Simulated scan of single mutants.
Amino acid sequence: MIEPQPLVAMIHAVPAAQRIAAETFTREFPQATVWNVLDDRLLHDARAAGGLTDALRRRMLRLIGHVMDGGAQALLLTCSSYGEVVDTARALWDAPILKSDEAMFTAALSAPHRRVAVVASAPPAVPAAVTQLEALVPAVRPGRPVDILTALSEEAAATDDAEAAARHLADALHAVGGTDVDAVLLAQYSLTPAGQALAALLGVPVLDGAGAAARELRGLLTSSGRTAAPARTVAP
């Protein structure tokens, strides 16, 4: 049954992701009622333990169970660390459960892009994003491989100015020959504010995870989403 104001839960590991996801859903999926849950100790505890432990995975699943028991009709996990428990969660609950960047990667691979760039400002985000993207290729575009370029700019994480962050990301892309790409994918929610400026600098579409997730869930949960225009990217 399609609800007029579907309840969408979001589980976050950092406050910045909560703010950015909320702002994005207000713009892209205003019909949704958003329920935010924050575990701001998760990444600290994972680092202290040397990675995700069985106890931390159970903790993640308990949080997912909490929002599902509370009536959530869909769930967005804004931290890539939660990707490890998504398959288990999908087997336990019927509601749509999205990994942080899953919708963005699917949208990018569904387009006729031959070469895409993945950009980040934190080193762990790069391999995590590439692994997810490559895993989706056989299912989304069988027989049509895509070239993936990566660029890292830790300077982009050191500024609160979106245009400055975009310039740092563009410089990092130029340094690795990233001017010849069909689209750019932002590997972190924290980079979303820089998307529009980065698109203007590079002259190619820039996709962000929060926006893609909002559009994906809008299409699944609302009648208007079923007839909405194709997914929008940030374009120059």
Rank of each mutant, 00 (worst) to 15 (best):
P4N: 06
Q5I: 10
V8I: 14
A16E: 14
Q18E: 11
A21L: 12
T24L: 00
E28Q: 12
V34F: 08
V37K: 11
A49Q: 07
A49M: 03
G51H: 07
L52I: 05
T53N: 11
A55L: 10
R57L: 06
R58P: 00
R59W: 07
I64R: 10
H66S: 15
V67Y: 13
A72Y: 06
A74K: 01
L75M: 02
T78N: 10
C79S: 13
V86S: 11
A91Y: 02
L98C: 11
L98W: 03
S100F: 02
E102P: 05
A107D: 02
A107Q: 10
S110I: 07
R114H: 09
R115E: 06
L133I: 12
R141S: 01
L152S: 09
T159E: 08
A164S: 12
A170Q: 14
D171Q: 15
L173W: 00
H174E: 12
V176Q: 03
G177T: 01
V181Q: 10
L185A: 11
L185R: 10
L186Y: 08
Q188K: 07
T192I: 10
L201S: 00
L207C: 06
A212E: 05
E216L: 01
R218I: 03
G219S: 08
T222Y: 04
S224K: 13
R226L: 09
V234F: 04
P236C: 07
